[in-house]
């Protein structure tokens, strides 16, 4: 049984509840062991990831947050030697192309638009943890994550 660690940073409580619900459902259905670390304020966020020794780590970053935006966290991650290779999925309501482009520029692995249904959310999360980021390099046109799942 594989071990997964998902780090999810979002200030929106509704989204974190739904996300947690989705992760639990996946874990149950797929008999997976998933550690979900949800943070709403980014406090010790980077340290916690750094200290996590789990093999499969995926970070979900919301973009539009108070004080510090998802882009800034992404930038911090990519400029940290230890964290520069951790897969990051930008996770936002916005389908704005400039946001998507910026995410790619800053070194995100995927961009997922927050879905309208629980099923889609589950697909997104499942997809994110099942990719072997060591081998996978997303072709540019696959960058839009929910094109794969939507």
């Amino acid at each position: 049984m594989n071990n997964y660690s998902i780090y999810y940073l979002d200030d929106d409580e509704d989204d974190t509840i739904l996300f947690e619900e989705a992760v639990m459902a996946i874990a149950e259905q797929q008999s997976l062991k998933i550690h979900l670390h949800i943070s709403e304020d980014g406090n010790r966020f980077l340290e916690n990831i750094k200290n996590d020794k789990a093999a499969g780590k995926v970070i979900f970053l919301d973009i539009n947050m108070p004080i510090k935006s998802g882009f800034e966290y992404l930038n911090d991650l990519r400029s940290n030697q230890n964290l520069s290779s951790v897969p990051v999925v930008m996770y936002s309501t916005s389908a704005n192309e400039s946001n998507i482009f910026k995410s790619q520029q800053l070194g995100a692995n995927y961009y997922a638009i927050k879905p309208n249904s629980m099923n889609d959310l589950k697909k997104i999360i499942h997809k994110a943890i099942s990719i072997d980021f060591q081998k996978e390099t997303a072709p540019p046109n696959n960058f839009l994550f929910n094109q794969l799942v939507g």
């Binding site: 509704d14 739904l18 309501t93 916005s94 704005n96 927050k114 879905p115 309208n116 249904s117 629980m118």
Partner: peptide, 16 residues
Amino acid sequence: THDLQEPLRKIRIMAS
């Protein structure tokens, strides 16, 4: 983009 889309999406995902 944000403030209008957000609640709508939540209504839908909660409904789902």
